[in-house]
Nucleic acid binder design. Structure first.
Lengths: 149, 149
DNA sequence: GTTGGTGCAAAGTGTTTGCAACCTC
DNA sequence: GAGGTTGCAAACACTTTGCACCAAC
């Protein structure tokens, strides 16, 4: 049964299993949320002193190519990465940056609609919405109130 | 009747109406699509020689704050801007970068669902989806075909 | 005339790259 | 041992900032 037990898809694809790649994968899996390259570097460097940022960038790129990591644009124009393990989506507050997760099921119907109207197939593994969180909404509305009459 | 005819919301808010701001606003409105800061700089600089990139960045930021421009993350981790005039959304191909527009109506139902489940109010002015365009999809599928059996 | 806005140039940030040494296979 | 990976350091692209001058009000 050994061959099927191989825990590292990288090996089976012919890539080398380096401490750097393992450290970064572990960071992503343990964080279980989106992290910026710098955050990933900091956490991985704790486990693997001597790790460099260049390697983090290269590895994140590599892991994304191999389907082991997902990349998204959560705001501020920069990229964030997360493990490819779980199927969920993000809702980001434009005002405070707070994020909420969206259940995958909610989007399924919508995907079908998009696909039939545009031919595009939505990347089911990760979608990001921008909006305003309840707290910021409240604040914005109170400003409007005080503004009129 | 003059006061009510003022065509520039900036003036009425107490901001100055400079050639730079007008040029950049015009570029956004005429492009009628998303542009990167560099593209905006290039186009605006044709109309207003001497314009600098620093001013473009400052102005885009300013216009976004004032609600006259919208900012979005369309891929590659960088920001793009567009006029706040029209209500549409983007679908970006992760493979080739091609974009499609999505009708606003399609999303309205979804927004309601999100709002009730998370309390977030989706930014109705701009949403971006990532996926794969028909052409790239076809290519990806043919690769899978050739890969198996 | 005031004060906000711009140009200029420099610095800052995040990311990529070339190359020799290294380590996984 | 061979070749894929990494560390190092430099280069790179994009964006922001300080300050003096200018122009819109």
């Amino acid at each position: 049964m050994q061959p099927e037990l191989d825990p590292h898809p990288l090996r089976s694809k012919g890539f080398r299993l380096t401490p750097q790649r393992l450290a970064i994968l572990n960071v992503l899996q343990e964080a279980d949320c989106h992290l910026s390259p710098v955050e990933i570097f900091q956490r991985a460097e704790e486990r693997l002193p001597g790790l460099t940022e260049a390697t983090v960038y290269r590895t994140l790129d590599f892991l994304t190519d191999q389907g082991l990591a997902l990349v998204a644009h959560l705001g501020s124009g920069h990229l964030v990465y997360e493990t490819a393990r779980h199927e969920h989506h993000h809702l980001v507050c434009r005002t405070c940056g707070q994020t909420a997760q969206i259940d995958h099921a909610v989007l399924e119907t919508l995907y079908a609609q998009f696909q039939s109207s545009t031919g595009f197939e939505i990347d089911t593994s990760h979608v990001v919405f921008f909006g305003h969180c309840p707290a910021c909404l409240k604040e914005m509305k109170s400003k409007v109130e005080s503004g009129r009459s």
